[in-house]
Every structure is written in C-alpha cells, then in structure tokens.
Simulated assay, not measured.
Amino acid sequence: MTQTIKTQVAIIGGGPAGMLLSILLHREGIDSVVIERATRDHVLSRIRAGVLEWSTVELLRRAGVGERMDREGHVHNGTRVAWKGEHHMMIDSHKYADRQFMAYGQTYITEDLYAEMDRLGGEVHHDAEDVVLHELTDRSYVTFKRGGEDYRVDCAFIAGCDGFHGVSRQSIPDSVQKNFEKVYPFGWLGVMSETPPLDDLWYVQHERGFALASQRSPMLSRYYVQCPIDDKIEDWSDDRFWEELKGRFPPDIAKQIVTGPSIEKSIAPLRSFVSEPMRYGNLFLAGDAAHIVPPTGAKGLNLAASDVYYLWRALVTHFHENSNALIDRYSEAALARVWKTERFSWWLTNLLHVFPDQSPFETRTQEAELDSIAHSETGLAWLSEQYAGFPIEDWG
C-alpha cells in the first residue's frame, strides 16, 4: 500500500539548499517535505566549500542557524593573490565593496541546518529510492520508495535542490531545456589537515599551476593545487602534496604553512554549467541542480543560497498574498545573478590557472593583467566588488 503525504512544497535534496529552504518556509508557516536519496550520515560527512558571502551569512542568520557560525566562523575583509613568486595584492572587499565574508565550512553549515530541522520537527525522508516527479504542469506529486514501502507526496510546488546528478533537472523536457557547459582540462587536488591555517585566504598563480590556501576553523586547514585531470589520489602522497603546494607559494608565505597528515584528500574536476530555465511548471531548480561554477571564485554555495532566497520569497508571496508575481519572475531573477557569477568564476579561473596548451605569451599576459589590476584603484575596486558577490535584490 502506498503511503500518501500532503504538503505545500516537496523539496528534492537534503543538502544545504534544500534544508535551508525548508527551514525558511517553516518560519513562514509553509509546510514542506524533504526527500533525499542519500543517508543522513552521508550528507553530513560531505566535504565542501567554506567561504560565505555576506548575503549568505545574513540569510543563515535569518533562518535562525547563525549562532555557531558567528561564534566559530572567521570574518575576513578580503583575499590575497600572489603571482610571479613574489607579487602580492589584496582583494579588499571591505574597503571597496563595504562587504566582508566569512570562512565557515559547509560541513558545519549542514550540521547546523540538520540540528535546527530536528528542533523544528521537520519532515526529512533519507534513503529515498526511485524518486520520480509527476504532472509538473498540473497537480504535481512525487513518488519514491523507502525501506521497502511506496510513498506519494502531493504538493503545490516542487523545489529541485538535488544537485547536478539529481532527478529534478532531468525531469524537464529536452524541448524546453537549454544547457550551457564548459569543462576545464584540469582538476583541483584538495587536502584537509588538522593544522592552523594561514591568517588570510590565498590564491596563487604559478607557472606549474594554481594553488589555494583556505580554512575551516582555527585548527583545520584546506589547501588545493591544480593537477592534471587524469591524476589519481594514489599519485599524491602527503609529502609530494606539501612540497608542491609550498613550491607554488612565494617563499615568505610558504614558510608560514604548517604541514601535517591529511585527514581528507580528493581530486575535483572543474566545470561551468547553466541550465535554463530554472522553472518548469510547478518545478523550480535551485543550486547545483541548475548551475555549477568552478570553485575558483568560491561561489557555488553562495549561488545556491541566493536561489533559495529568491524561491523562498516567491513562495511566501504566493501562499500569503495569493500572488504569482515573484513565482513568475523566479527564473529570470535567479539567472541574472547566476550568469554574472558564472562569468566572474570563468574569468578568474582563466586568469589564475595554467592550461595544458598554454603558450609563454599567454602566461605573460596573465601576469600583466594581475600587475595592471594591482596598480589600479579602479581595477582593485572592480575585482573586490565581483569577489564580494553581487547584491541580492530585496523583493520585500
């Protein structure tokens, strides 16, 4: 026998986007059910980004999940960039854009969201199999299997927050959907270590490839080096990683890096991807289900948060004011910010990485562009504004 659940919004995906949306809706008295294909332990163990734009910080606070973030997160005024082994500059988002950002790991955000969902008594179905979205332009419903039982969720709207490989985007007809994609010919080898991070976040352009120093907590560091896309984890011992990372940093910064055993190591491919539209009938895409950015600009989670903001406001306006004005504008509003952010992440990726067929001429032009930005107040202001994140329109 099929168990039938009735709700106002069915949310596909129990990651940060889906959970944040559910909590925000709950605070407005709007019912939702979250359906997640993975186990709760798996979702909570994912290692992801950790740089939050200030609009994301404020949205998390608005959802009531900012207490731990404000206590443990590290507020920054900007990010540093190094090139040619000696040149440094500051992307000073506080000075030029009047916005700070916060280093706080996505794993912690997910833990905070789940703790709040538990407190609110929210409904989350993990281990969901065979998830199918039905009647997207009529009386929509979702079916899935869990624990050997069949479920049906009747709803007014479906929020597809289930990532790049999820079922939500795949449920939109090919005749309606347009996909735009660029795949980059390299990856990022990331290492997590229980070592004190550098005081600042660092981006490094080097002739052997890009490098990055990030942080998750006062005793948890996250570092990356650009590597060939076909490299394997087994190719990279801890010793080799630390030697390569420090070799790419300017000597005065490299000597400040504290090394130690890796507690997590992974290689991530890089791609830019956008799917249009982000709405089809009663289905709305949000986060990685609709778009992917290369991690260079630290925009993935922040874009997901802005999607959630737009969708949350649209649903509140629909249910509380009986108006579809924001529902009808959702895809347009979200995509306007998505494409600006995609362009910035693509540009920064091209500026800081070494491509397999890159010529010495192209390397010199990268260095010259960094030099020109560093010596221009206008250039520094533009870069800082872009890095700080584009404003989220306040729909009231």
Rank of each mutant, 00 (worst) to 15 (best):
R248N: 09
N179H: 10
K265F: 02
L283Y: 02
Q226A: 01
F241L: 05
L335A: 01
T378V: 13
M19K: 01
S323P: 04
V308N: 08
G209R: 07
L383V: 12
P261W: 04
S372N: 13
C161E: 00
M102T: 14
A334T: 07
I292A: 03
Q8S: 12
V43I: 15
W382F: 11
P356Y: 04
S93E: 06
G64V: 04
A10G: 04
C161W: 01
L21D: 03
G64C: 05
Q3W: 00
A49F: 02
G66D: 10
H87Y: 14
P391V: 01
E181P: 00
H26Q: 13
C155Q: 07
G396K: 13
E244R: 01
Q170G: 14
L133A: 11
A211I: 10
G14Y: 01
Q177K: 14
A289V: 10
V153C: 05
Q106A: 09
I12T: 05
E369F: 12
W346M: 05
R27Q: 13
G287Y: 10
H165R: 15
P197W: 01
I30C: 06
R337C: 02
G300K: 03
S323G: 04
F284L: 03
E207A: 13
E58D: 14
M19S: 08
K255A: 05
F319M: 05
S237R: 12
G389M: 09
T7K: 03
L303Q: 14
A268L: 13
A38S: 13
I35K: 03
R37I: 07
L370F: 12
E332D: 14
A304G: 14
F157C: 06
R71Q: 15
T296D: 04
S376M: 05
N302K: 08
S140Y: 00
F355A: 11
F355R: 08
L25V: 02
L370R: 13
L245F: 15
P228R: 10
L270S: 13
E234V: 13
R146C: 12
I109M: 15
W242H: 01
A17L: 02
G73P: 04
G14E: 04
D235T: 11
S221E: 11
E342W: 02
W236N: 11
A128D: 02
W188G: 04
S93R: 06
V176S: 09
E149G: 02
D112I: 08
I158M: 06
Y387F: 11
S221K: 14
L25E: 07
D127N: 15
P251M: 09
D112M: 14
A211C: 06
E36S: 06
L311V: 08
R337P: 00
Y280Q: 06
F157P: 05
V153H: 07
V191I: 15
W83Y: 12
L326M: 00
F284S: 01
A368T: 09
H134G: 05
I172A: 11
R61D: 15
W339A: 00
M192V: 09
S171R: 11
R27A: 10
G389K: 10
W312S: 12
Q256N: 10
R46W: 02
D288R: 05
Q358H: 11
I11R: 00
P197N: 02
V293Q: 00
R27T: 08
S193C: 01
S22M: 02
R37D: 03
Y309G: 01
G297D: 03
L301Q: 07
N324V: 00
F101H: 15
H353K: 07
D70T: 13
S272F: 07
W346R: 09
